[in-house]
Each structure stands twice: as structure tokens, then as C-alpha cells.
Design a protein around this nucleic acid. Structure first.
Lengths: 235, 235
DNA sequence: GTTTGTGAAAGGATTCACAGCA
DNA sequence: TGCTGTGAATCCTTTCACAAAC
């Protein structure tokens, strides 16, 4: 193992860890860079990129510096080069297989969402517990019964599971995914999933975001009436 | 104005600002507390609540302390009381009117999502630019043309706009919302919106979360092969 | 002149640990 | 005894500011 690490380290100076806050922004940079590439731009400065994603240029530079030293002083960054390095850092070149459980409205939206496949994710299967939905054709995939979950995971080498079921069945689906060997789960159901150590869960809660917005809207309304001191707005 | 502040301040000791990280967790606490209330629990300790939402008890206590001192030492917190205080802090008692633009699959999912209405949001209107979708009945609401946007906002006192359109039309819809007077926007389209100062935008990007998951999955795969040092997993 | 890469400083958030109260 | 509320310490993130490189 030691020589493998050594070999990598001499090939390119690898940092041990990219900060979590940076990881969360890399996909945003990536999308902006894809747009730039399509529009024909070949280079971009940290200042211009910051403008596109909303933030400061110093933050952009520090973020990108965690991937390596891929900029040119006085010039900026090569768009294509950055796309490559960010994609690799995010593991998007791996072509992960994803299984999506629950094809209600949200599941439909996710299955048809170009952002998944265009970033190298391969939807290996769509599953649903509702027999009336099984067999339906969505985005070129036929919906299979959840009973197939185990088989699907083993057959297709799925590493990421997406849960878009109602809250009530999410934990059960999660348990089955974990039992089948899935170690990364993206959860859209409005529950906090309990998972064993070694399983990574991320949650997207549509209502949470609206409530955060409500907080700020409320603050603004209150400060307008003078009930609380005015606060800055993260516009 | 001064006496209003005074009156409020003596009624309950108001802190000037709740940290952003805390605000982001309040909706999560709120959901857990609603579940607890339904199951008949009347009190909950910070330790037990931490268990439910995933986190440490000290964090829970510090978060709740920003709302005021509503716990009882040796006992815990009153579930109903916490629900009330968190709801008020988040402005959920205001009954905000929300306008949803774009009723594709995602828009359908959002319109039918119970988490919105059950938290006090009122969907004032559904809008879509596609004439074939206008007139459709979704969750008891008839879809109206985007041309009505201005009228809808003015008539119904909308304060929050939700954008669930394709990326291409999101900025235009955003501009129209802002022009009509909307100051809070929840954006599901995969673009960074440009807004004037004083407008609050929050973004939910379905693909971003998947890419963050991919990063960790990739890290795990690499560390298994010894190419990079092992990293902890935020399970 | 322009723009990167990065130490240093500043600002937040989390965790620790315990005094204080029921 | 049990649990909250909170200063103090620690850790993480952002911002500043400037030397080095083009």
C-alpha cells in the first residue's frame, strides 16, 4: 500500500482532503464551466467565475487550489482542464449506476432530469411498490417491482440509491438498499433515515428550503414594522 | 415604533439574530416534533431529539436556546411549546401565499406535496407557459398562463415564488416575479439566478446532491484500493 | 498590468464541560 | 439525580492581502 500512495503522490501532488464546503460547490462550478465551454470560452478568471456562481473570487481560488494548481497567473483557468479535474475529483468519470425507488411525480421528475445522465450517472433501474405502476415506461426504462431490488443491485453493480417514496416507506426501502450493499443514499422523503456506520446519506427536503425562506421573509416583514432590528439579506 | 419594540422585548427576551446554521435545522426539529406530538409524547429531552434528527444534544440545546429558554432542567422540553415557538420563529404562522411557476413533473410533485400546505403555506396559483397545460386541474388548482403572473401576485398578496421551470426560462420568470414584487424565491431550475439586492433566493439542485454523494463514494472506492488515505464518512 | 496561490486574520459553527436549577 | 443553558475551547470556513508568476 505504501508504494501505491507514493506513486500517486509523485504523479500529482495529492492533498489529503478537500473541505466539505468546497465539495458542495464543485458541482456548481462544474455546471457554470459546462455552460462556458458550450459558449466557446476557453479560459476564465476566478473573478468571472465567482460572478457566474455568486461568491467571491478568493473563495473560488481557494476552492480550486484544493484540486491542484491548474491556473495560470495573469491569465486564468483553462475551462476544459477545470471541467476534467473537477469531474474526476467528484468521481463523475466513474459512471456510477443509480437505482431510483419510487416513481411518483417526484420520481418521474428525477428519472427524466437531464442533470443526472449528463453528469455521468446511469439509471440502472426504476422501482416502485405500486403494482399499477410496475411495467410503465419512463425515460426508456421499464418500472420494476421493489421486490427486484436485491437482484437489481447485485446484477447492475449499483452503488447509489435514490429514495423518492412517501415518508412512510422510506426507512424500509433504505434498509433493503443497505442490505443489498448500497453505501450511498440520496433521500427525498421527509424523514431522517437511520443507517449503520459506513453508509452515507444525503437528504433533500423540499419543504425545509421553503421554511428557511419563510424565516427570512418573516424577518423582513418584522423589521419593516420595527418589531425587530433589521437584518442583512443573503441576496 | 420604539414602544412596539419595548413591548415586545419585555414580553419575551428577543435575541437579535438566530445563526443561519440553526435556522436551517429548525424545520427538521419541527418535523420531528410534529411526529412526536402525534404519537402522544408531551416532553422530549435534547438527547432524545438529537437522536431523532441525527446530531449531538449540545447542538440541539444551543439551537433551541436561540429561541429563548423554553426547557426545564431535569425534565426536557414541552413538545407543543417547542412546536409553537419554532413555527413562530420560522414565520409559519403567517400563512404565506406561494405562487408556483412550471407544472412539469417536478411542479406536479411540489403542488401535491403535503409538506407545503401542512406547514402553513398556501398555494395561491399554479402557472405554466405551455398552453396545453393551462387549464389543467392540479391539487384543486387550475393552471393559469404565466401571462397572469403579475395579476396573481398583486391579487393574492404572494410573497414567495417557486420556480420549477426548465433552466432556460428560469431567469425570465425570476425577473417577472421580482418585477411583480416578490422578494423570496425558491429555485429548482439548474441555473444561478441574478437578482437585485433585497431579494432572497434559495436554490435546490437535484443533481448537485447526487454529485456530492458521488464524491464520497469515489473517495471510499479509492481508499479501498489504497490510492488515497481513508477518510471519515459523515454517516 | 493582470491574475493566481496562499499564509494570516477574522468570523462562524460545533463540541466540551460544567455550573445551576428542577 | 437528570437535564438545561452557556462560557470556553476547538474546529472549520471565509476573507484579506500580497508575493510570485505570467
Amino acid at each position: 500500500m505504501t508504494e501505491q500512495v507514493r506513486a500517486r503522490e509523485t504523479a500529482r501532488p495529492r492533498r489529503t482532503g478537500v473541505p466539505e464546503a468546497t465539495v458542495a460547490r464543485l458541482p456548481v462550478y462544474l455546471r457554470a464551466l459546462h455552460v462556458l465551454a458550450e459558449s466557446g470560452s476557453t479560459t476564465i478568471s476566478s473573478e468571472a467565475l465567482a460572478q457566474l456562481v455568486g461568491g467571491g473570487s478568493a473563495k473560488v481560488r481557494k476552492d480550486l487550489s484544493h484540486l491542484g494548481s491548474y491556473g495560470t497567473r495573469g491569465v486564468g483557468y483553462q475551462v476544459e482542464e477545470l471541467v476534467f479535474h473537477i469531474s474526476r475529483e467528484l468521481g463523475l468519470t466513474q459512471g456510477w449506476a443509480v437505482v431510483l425507488v419510487g416513481v411518483g411525480n417526484l420520481g418521474h421528475a428525477l428519472a427524466g432530469y437531464g442533470g443526472f445522465t449528463s453528469r455521468g450517472f446511469r439509471i440502472a433501474a426504476l422501482l416502485d411498490s405500486d403494482p399499477t405502476r410496475v411495467g410503465e415506461l419512463i425515460a426508456g426504462q421499464r418500472v420494476r417491482p421493489v421486490a427486484d431490488l436485491d437482484a437489481v443491485v447485485r446484477e447492475t453493480g449499483v452503488s447509489i440509491g435514490v429514495i423518492a417514496t412517501p415518508g412512510g416507506s422510506a426507512q424500509e426501502v433504505c434498509d433493503r438498499l443497505v442490505a443489498a450493499g448500497v453505501t450511498s443514499i440520496l433521500n427525498f422523503a421527509p424523514v431522517v433515515l437511520q443507517v449503520p456506520d459506513g453508509v452515507d446519506v444525503r437528504k433533500v427536503d423540499l419543504a425545509v428550503e421553503l421554511q428557511i425562506l419563510s424565516f427570512h421573509q418573516n424577518r423582513r416583514a418584522l423589521s419593516a414594522t420595527g418589531l425587530v432590528p433589521a437584518q442583512g439579506i443573503s441576496a
